[in-house]
Design a binder for these strands. Structure first.
Length: 914
RNA sequence: GGGAGAUUAGCUCAGCUGGUUCAGAGCAUCUGCCUUACAAGCAGAGGGUCACUGGUUCGAACCCAGUAUCUCCCA
C-alpha cells in the first residue's frame, strides 16, 4: 500500500471526531476517579468563531485531553449564553426584514420570535468548535436561558433580595439611548474623541457695580473677553455693567439641567462671588454658586457647571450639596420639556443649535478643540448617556470581600499572577451592580407591583399575591390580576455568574438540596478556567462571589488568562478592521492540528498573541514531519535473525525522552503551554527524527533487527501520546495503524495513558552530546572542504576522556558517513583536526590541511580560550569572590579553569605540530 | 491625571534563587544539497551595547533609582 508523502488532515479529522463522539470518549459521568473539570466560558449564542475563541478553546482542549490521558475523569462542559442585548438586536433586525416592528408585538410574541431565531441561528459557534477538535461533553451543553437555568437565576434573585443584597433605587447608570437600555460599566467602551470645549458665560445676579467682572482666568483668556468688549481690564472696573462667570463644557446642551456653578474655595480669583447666584443663559433660571475643592483651579476656567442629572461626578457633587436633579433628556436621547428650549431635539442636534443660540445671546465666549474620553455602548456603539434611573441593583460590598480573599490567599490562582493587582484594585473599589435591563430577552425580574406602587418579590404570581396581601391589608380589594410584573429582565451576567454551578445542577439554587446533585458534588469546584483578562472582573470575580455565596467554595482553582489575538501590526483582530482570518478557512488550509499548534506556539499566559499564519504553517509542517517519520518506520522490514546494533541509540533516546518528559510536565504544571509544546516539538523533530531515526535506520532496502524495531515502535507510541493533546487528529490516525498492533474498538489515543517518567542517565546524555558534537564537526569539515556527503571519510580518535568511542563507532560511522574509525595516541600531522569535549579527532583527507589557514584557525580559538581563562583566573584570584560565592560556584569556576587549560594545551601542541 | 506591566537577534518570545543551563529557542535570513521518510525536507552558518543613565555587589539581562518609548486598566 502506498502511503501519501504528505499528511492529509481533511480525511482524518471528520472521521475521528465522529468516532470519538460515537464511542462516548468526551462523555463524563461521576465515578471514583479524580475529576478534572473545565466549564467553557459560554460564548454569546449569536457569536461565530473568531481567533480569540480559537486560542481560548485550544488551550482548554489541550488541558482537558491531557487530564484525560492522565487517568482523570475529564469533563469539559460546553454551552452558550443568551447575550440579551446582542440577541435582541439580531431578532429586531430579523423582524425588520419581515416588516415587523418590535413595538407592535407583545412580549410573548417577541419571545417566540427570539426563540425561533435562537433555534435557527444560535449556537453555530459550538458546531465550529467541533472542527477545532474540542472534546467537550456535548450531552452537557447548556444555554443560560434553558428553563431550569432560568429558574435558578430567579431563585438566586429572590435569595439575594431576601438577604437585602438586591434593592431598587435611583442611581446614575450608563444609558444606551439607541438600545434604550442600561448597560453595565464593563459594557461601556471608552474612546478618545475630538470634541469641542465651549466657554459659556453665566450672568452673576445682583453683583454690585463697583466690583469688576473677572471672567475666567487671567492672561490670554481675559484678553479675549477684553477684546470682545473693546475694553480694558481697568475699564471693567470703572464702568457699571453686567458681570459674568465663564464655564467650560463639552456639553452645552445640558446647561438647562444645571443646578449650580461650583468653584474652588481656595480660588482667589472668584472670592468675591461667594454666596452669589448666576443665571443660566437662554432660560434665565437662577442657580447658586457653591464651593467645593473637587474643582481643579487650573482646569478650564476653574468654574464648573454642576449638572447632577447628566454626569456622575456632578451627581455626587449634587448629593453633597443637596442640589436638585433636573433631568432634561428622554430615553431616546432627545430633550424633554424640562429643558424648556429645543424640546424634542436629539442631544447632538441640540448641542449644535444651542451653541448658535448662545452665540447670538452673547453668552458664548469661545470654542476650543478638545480631546476627551467618551463612553460608547459595546453593543450599539451609541454614545452612552449618564442617566438617573430607577433600576435594580445587587450590593457588592459583602460579596467582594470573600471573593478577594480567595485570590489573595491563593485558593484561586490567577495565571499569570500579575493580574492579582488589578483584581485587588477592582474588588476594593467595587460599585453596586446594576442588574436590570430594559429588554425582553432574558429572565424577567420576579418583582410584582401593587396598584399603590408597592412591590413584592416572589417566584410566581400566586406567591406574590399572598405576599402582597400581607403587605397591604389596606387594599382589601386587591385581586391577583392587579399585580403587575416588573418589565425588566436581569443582566446576562446575572445568569453566567452561576455558570460553574448551574451547568451541573441548575436546580441547586432552589435551596431544596443544600449539597446539590451528584454531578455538582463530583465536579465542583472545577479545576481550570480559561478566559480573557477583560472579563476578570465582571465574570470571573462574580463567579467567585456566586460560588462563595451559594456553594461556600470558589468555583475553580486556577484561572488561566489568555491574551488578545492581534495581527502582525499589533492591532486587535476584529471584524470591523477586517484583519482577522476566518478560523475555519485556516483549519481548511492547515488542518485543525496545524492551527492548534500555530495558536499555541507563541502564546504565553496573559500575553497578547501576535498572530501570524506562518505559525499555522509551521504547525502543518510539524504534522507532516510526524507523518513522514511514520512512513519511514512503517516501511521497515524486520529480520528476526539480525542482532541489535543500536543499543546505545535506544538507551540514549529512552533517557532523552524521560528528560524531555520531565521538562514538559514541569511546563504544564506552570501552565507554560507554549513551552510544553516547544519542548515536545524539539523532542520529536530534533531528537527523534533528526538523531534517533537517523542513528537506527537501516541502509536503504535493508531489513532492521527485531529489537530496534520494537523499541522504535514503543518510542513512537509514546510520542503519539505526548503529542496528542496538541494534535489530536493526526495522532489518533496513526495510533490505529497496524504498525502499532491490533486495536480494540475503544483502544484510542485519546484515552491512552501518558507515559511515566523513567530514569535519566546523565552520563549517557553527556556522552551522546559529545558524539553529536563530533558528527557536527565532521559535517562541518565536509561543508568547508566541499566534500560530498556520499563520500565516506576516515576518522582517527585521540581520546583524552572517559568516553569509550569504540561503542559509539556505529553511530559515528553512520551519521558521519565514515569509511573507518581508528584510534590513535599521537596527533596526526597534516590531518584536519578538531576537538570535542577534551578529545581530539583527525581526518586525513585527499586535500589535507592548508597549514596557514589552520594556524589562523587555531590561533583564533586559542586567543579566545586564553581570554576566557584570564577572566576565570581573575575571579578565582579575587579573595572576595572565593570568600563570598557559594562553594559549588567556586568549584565550577575551577572546573572551567581546568577545561580551558586542557584545551589550550591541546591547541598549543597542534600549533607546534603544524 | 492615577495605577499596573513591558522593552533581550530581522520577527515572536524564554531566561527560575544575581554566578557555564548565560546571552538562548523557534521562525525568518544566508550557504550547500532534489542524499530512497519528509524540499511542508536535509546539513551548516551568520545575527544581540539584554531601551538608556547611574547605583548596590567580588560579580547584574536579572536587584534599586531615574529617563525614554510602548501596552493595558481606572478617572
Amino acid at each position: 500500500m502506498e502511503i501519501p508523502k504528505t499528511y492529509n488532515p481533511k480525511e482524518t479529522e471528520n472521521k475521528w471526531y465522529q468516532y470519538w463522539m460515537e464511542h462516548g470518549f468526551f462523555k463524563s459521568v461521576p465515578d471514583d476517579r479524580e475529576p478534572y473539570t473545565i466549564v467553557i466560558p459560554p460564548p454569546n449564542v449569536t457569536g461565530v468563531l473568531h481567533m480569540g475563541h480559537m486560542l481560548n478553546n485550544t488551550i482548554q482542549d489541550v488541558l482537558v485531553r491531557r487530564a484525560r490521558m492522565q487517568g482523570k475523569n475529564a469533563c469539559w462542559a460546553p454551552g452558550t449564553d443568551h447575550a440579551s442585548i446582542a440577541t435582541e438586536a439580531k431578532v429586531v433586525a430579523m423582524l425588520k426584514e419581515r416588516g415587523i416592528a418590535k413595538k407592535d408585538l407583545s412580549r410573548e410574541e417577541f419571545l417566540n420570535y427570539a426563540w425561533e431565531w435562537k433555534e435557527k441561528y444560535g449556537g453555530i459557534i459550538l458546531e465550529q468548535l467541533k472542527k477545532l477538535g474540542a472534546s467537550c461533553d456535548w450531552d452537557r451543553t447548556r444555554f443560560t436561558m434553558d428553563a431550569d437555568m432560568s429558574e435558578g437565576v430567579i431563585d438566586t434573585f429572590i435569595h439575594l433580595y431576601k438577604k437585602g443584597w438586591i434593592y431598587r433605587g435611583v442611581r446614575m447608570v450608563n444609558w444606551d439611548p439607541q438600545g434604550k437600555t442600561v448597560v453595565s460599566d464593563e459594557e461601556v467602551i471608552r474612546k478618545e474623541v475630538n470634541q469641542k470645549l465651549y466657554y459659556i458665560r453665566y450672568e452673576v445676579v445682583g453683583l454690585s457695580e463697583e466690583v469688576g467682572a473677572r471672567s475666567g482666568e487671567q492672561g490670554d483668556q481675559q484678553s479675549v473677553i477684553s477684546n470682545q468688549l473693546s475694553a480694558s481690564d481697568e475699564f471693567l472696573h470703572l464702568t457699571p455693567r453686567t458681570s459674568y462667570l465663564t464655564i467650560a463644557t463639552t456639553r452645552p446642551e445640558t446647561i438647562m439641567a444645571d443646578a449650580a456653578i461650583c468653584i474652588n474655595p481656595n480660588d482667589e480669583r472668584y472670592a468675591s462671588f461667594i454666596g452669589k447666584k448666576v443665571l443660566i443663559p437662554l432660560i434665565n433660571r437662577e442657580i447658586p454658586i457653591i464651593l467645593d475643592d473637587y474643582v481643579e483651579m487650573d482646569f478650564g476656567t476653574g468654574c464648573l457647571k454642576v449638572t447632577p442629572a447628566h454626569d456622575l461626578n456632578d451627581y455626587n457633587l449634587g448629593i453633597k450639596h443637596h442640589l436638585p436633579v433636573i433631568d432634561i433628556l428622554n430615553d431616546d436621547g432627545t430633550l424633554n420639556e424640562k429643558a424648556e428650549i429645543l424640546v424634542g431635539k436629539d442631544r447632538f442636534a441640540a448641542r449644535k443649535e444651542i451653541a448658535k443660540l448662545l452665540e447670538e445671546a452673547g453668552n458664548l465666549e469661545k470654542i476650543e478643540e478638545y480631546k476627551s474620553q467618551v463612553g460608547f455602548s459595546e453593543r450599539t456603539d451609541a454614545v452612552i448617556e449618564p442617566k438617573l434611573s430607577m433600576q435594580w441593583f445587587c450590593k457588592m460590598e459583602e460579596m467582594a470581600g470573600p471573593a478577594l480573599d480567595y485570590v489573595l490567599n491563593g485558593e484561586v490562582k490567577l495565571i499569570p499572577d500579575k493580574f492579582i493587582n488589578t483584581y485587588k484594585y477592582w474588588m476594593e473599589n467595587v460599585k453596586d451592580w446594576c442588574i436590570s435591563r430594559q429588554l425582553w430577552w432574558g429572565q424577567q425580574i420576579p418583582a410584582w407591583y401593587l396598584p399603590n406602587g408597592q412591590f413584592v418579590v416572589a417566584k410566581t404570581r400566586e406567591e406574590a399575591f399572598e405576599e402582597a396581601k400581607l403587605l397591604s391589608p389596606q387594599l382589601p380589594d386587591l385581586k391577583i390580576e392587579d399585580l403587575h410584573q416588573e418589565e425588566d429582565v436581569v443582566d446576562t451576567w446575572f445568569s453566567s455568574w452561576l455558570w460553574p454551578i448551574s451547568v451541573f445542577d441548575p436546580s441547586f439554587f432552589s435551596g431544596k438540596n443544600s449539597i446539590g446533585n451528584a454531578d455538582l458534588q463530583y465536579y465542583y469546584p472545577t479545576n481550570d478556567l480559561v478566559t480573557a483578562p477583560e472579563i476578570l472582573f465582571f465574570w470571573v470575580a462574580r463567579m467567585i462571589m456566586a460560588g462563595h455565596e451559594f456553594k461556600g467554595e470558589a468555583p475553580f482553582k486556577n484561572v488561566y488568562l489568555t491574551g488578545i489575538v492581534r495581527d502582525k501590526l499589533g492591532r486587535k483582530m476584529s471584524k470591523s478592521l477586517g484583519n482577522s482570518p476566518d478560523p475555519l478557512d485556516l483549519i481548511e488550509k492547515y488542518g485543525a492540528d496545524g492551527v492548534r499548534v500555530g495558536m499555541l506556539f507563541s502564546s504565553p499566559a496573559g500575553n497578547d498573541l501576535m498572530f501570524d499564519e506562518s505559525h499555522c504553517e509551521q504547525g502543518r509542517n510539524f504534522a507532516n514531519k510526524i507523518w513522514n517519520a511514520f512512513r519511514l518506520v512503517k516501511g521497515w522490514e524486520v529480520d528476526q535473525h539480525l542482532s541489535n546494533p543500536n543499543e546505545n541509540a535506544i538507551a540514549w533516546f529512552e533517557t532523552r525522552f524521560n528528560q524531555a518528559l520531565t521538562e514538559i510536565e514541569e511546563n504544564f504544571k506552570q501552565y507554560r503551554l507554549s513551552e510544553a509544546l516547544m519542548a515536545t516539538y524539539k523532542l520529536v523533530w530534533d531528537d527523534f527524527c533528526a538523531w534517533y531515526l537517523e542513528m537506527v535506520k537501516p541502509v536503504y532496502q535493508q531489513p532492521i533487527d527485531a529489537a530496534t524495531h520494537k523499541a522504535t515502535i514503543q518510542f513512537f507510541k509514546n510520542i503519539l501520546k505526548i503529542v496528542h493533546p496538541f494534535m489530536p487528529f493526526l495522532t489518533e490516525e496513526l495510533w490505529h495503524d497496524n504498525l502499532f498492533g491490533e486495536r480494540e474498538e475503544l483502544d484510542c489515543c485519546i484515552v491512552a495513558q501518558q507515559p511515566v517518567i523513567g530514569e535519566i542517565n546523565l552520563k549517557l546524555l553527556n556522552e551522546i552530546s559529545t558524539i553529536k558534537e563530533v558528527i557536527a564537526e565532521i559535517r562541518n569539515t565536509r561543508n568547508m572542504k566541499q566534500i560530498s556527503p556520499k563520500e565516506a571519510l576516515p576518522l582517527a580518535v585521540k581520546s583524552n576522556s572517559e568516553i569509550n568511542y569504540q561503542t559509539y563507532q556505529p553511530i559515528l560511522s553512520k551519521l558521519g558517513n565514515l569509511s573507518e574509525v581508528s584510534f590513535t595516541t599521537e596527533k596526526i600531522a597534516g590531518a584536519v583536526n578538531f576537538i570535542a569535549g577534551t578529545d581530539e579527532f583527525f581526518m586525513e583527507l585527499a586535500n589535507n590541511v592548508d597549514a596557514e589557514a589552520e594556524r589562523e584557525r587555531i590561533q583564533k580559538e586559542l586567543s579566545y580560550l586564553q581570554g576566557f581563562l584570564k577572566s576565570v583566573n581573575a575571579k578565582l584570584s579575587n579573595e572576595r569572590f572565593v570568600q563570598n560565592a557559594k562553594a559549588e560556584i567556586v568549584a565550577n569556576e575551577q572546573q572551567k579553569k581546568a577545561d580551558a587549560e586542557a584545551k589550550i594545551a591541546i591547541l598549543e601542541e597542534g600549533l607546534a605540530a603544524l
